[in-house]
Amino acid sequence: MSDLTININGEHVTANVEPRLSLADFIRDHQRLTGTHLGCEHGVCGACTVLMNGEPVRSCITFAVVADGTEITTIEGFDDDEPMAQLRQAFHENHALQCGYCTPGMLVAARDIVTRLPDADEDRVRLELAGNLCRCTGYVGIVKAILSVLEQRCS
């Protein structure tokens, strides 16, 4: 067992965990923050994407012990975040989700796109989204939503 101190969504958390526990399982099962979803559990689908020290990472292939001392933001931690508020509204308006399983990871990835790549065009948005799988929407609504937020933030 290993000691662990993480700041999750602004809250200081200490725990004693097994080394093999993934950050995703720590977030969901130990912290009961079930907004982070698990799909493939080997880093391909993107559903488990969270922010670590402000950058998107895969929580399913990051061990909780490795996240010791970091700041984690899960989908529950963006209440006062401007780009995320814009994305939530845009996802709603553009029908960018159906079942919602990929949405938490999709939103975290989308936030990275609109903040890191303000000049991204549709091709770039689609390329950047290659690491987040959605099986319902065909991505059309998701891409439209992200493009609309990029435009909003430009003006």
Binding site: G43, M52, E55, A109, G131
Partner: peptide, 9 residues
């Protein structure tokens, strides 16, 4: 290489 969330780590 892979995706940005993997490239970050």
């Amino acid at each position: 290489i892979s995706y940005r969330s993997v490239r970050n780590r």
